[in-house]
């Protein structure tokens, strides 16, 4: 039996249809359920809670019964919006610190002789392949009272109180910068490596001092790398749960942790869903702005 053209077209269409259906079922549908759950009440939705699919006929009913209680709670209770703001602030601090550490590193890597670069690149990527949990765990041993940092300081002759860094904001910041540093270094390295060194020589020939040449030539030209790295660090950092949970304390309440405890400890699924919806809005908005800025730059170029 030979495969007719219709059969072939069907086969070709499967390439699109299979992943499409998968994503519609496991990405889009769950998201719709989260939205629906965010607008329902905790009292009627105590787990085990099984929302029934009511179909489009009930859509009118559903819209007229929209319950904004969860969202007004999010707006009224300072715990929630403060933890949103706190997450954004901590993610921004992480991004800046990762840039401050990552830029010199990426710059040095890009300036290294070409035969070293491959090895240096593998060395940056390797920690990323090791478990995230392990890397965070390693810092607990270092930062906890009488941990390795305190021991190292004591052996260097610094006597006194233990630093008590664990369960503070500093610990969360260190853990986040550490975990996300490769995401900053890789795009920076990619742009810096492609940078035309002739431009720097030209600047030097024209009398620019190294610092001036860096500020007026290298830095502006590496801006795309900085933006890409910043996005790769900032976005996952906002919704981070594991690092603030393991390294942070009672005053480092990030929104990912709030969602987690609303769900697992308070078992308030509708409120957890509302937190998720707002978190997405908070994250998607800067992304769309970033994308538009990039498009505009590309149009201008």
């Amino acid at each position: 039996m030979s495969a007719g053209p219709t059969h072939l077209a069907g086969l070709r269409r499967l390439v699109v249809i299979v992943p499409y259906l998968w994503l519609a079922l496991f990405f889009l549908a769950p998201f719709a359920i989260v939205l629906r759950m965010a607008f329902s009440q905790a009292a009627t939705a105590l787990p085990p809670y099984a929302p029934h699919w009511e179909g489009l006929a009930r859509l009118g009913d559903f819209l007229s019964q929209l319950d904004l209680a969860n969202f007004s709670l999010l707006a009224d209770d300072p715990l929630y919006w403060q933890s949103y703001l706190y997450s954004l602030r901590l993610a921004a601090m992480t991004t800046l610190a990762a840039l401050a550490i990552g830029y010199p590193l990426a710059y040095a890597m890009a300036s290294a002789p070409p035969r070293w670069r491959g090895l240096l690149l593998v060395l940056v990527i390797l920690p990323f392949w090791t478990s995230f949990l392990i890397r965070v765990y390693a810092w607990i041993g270092i930062l906890r009272p009488d941990g390795l940092l305190d021991a190292a300081l004591a052996s260097l002759g610094f006597e006194g109180e233990p630093l008590r860094l664990l369960n503070t904001e500093a610990a969360v910041l260190i853990g986040m910068v550490y975990s996300y540093l490769p995401f900053m270094v890789l795009p920076l390295f990619a742009t810096l490596e492609k940078l035309d060194r002739g431009l720097l020589e030209a600047a030097a020939d024209l009398g620019a001092r190294p610092l001036t040449a860096f500020l007026t030539v290298t830095l502006p030209l590496s801006l795309p790398g900085i933006l890409a790295g910043a996005a790769l660090v900032f976005i996952p950092a906002v919704g981070e749960f594991v690092i603030p949970d393991l390294l942070g304390g009672p005053d480092t309440v990030m929104i990912g942790k709030v969602l987690w405890s609303e769900f697992f400890s308070n078992r308030d699924w509708p409120l957890a869903s509302a937190v998720a919806v707002v978190l997405l809005v908070v994250l998607v908005l800067p992304l769309v702005l970033l994308q538009r800025a990039r498009l505009r730059r590309e149009m201008a170029a």
């Binding site: 496991f26 549908a29 769950p30 998201f31 359920i33 989260v34 759950m37 085990p48 809670y49 099984a50 929302p51 029934h52 699919w53 976005i235 996952p236 906002v238 919704g239 981070e240 749960f241 990912g256 969602l259 987690w260 769900f263 699924w269 957890a272 869903s273 998720a276 978190l279 997405l280 994250l283 992304l287």
Partner: peptide, 18 residues
């Protein structure tokens, strides 16, 4: 790629429950 893990996890769980 940019979804917070907590959101992915919650939304899929709600699907499986539903």
């Amino acid at each position: 790629l940019v979804m917070p893990e907590v959101v992915t996890g919650l939304s899929l769980l709600l699907l499986f429950v539903a």
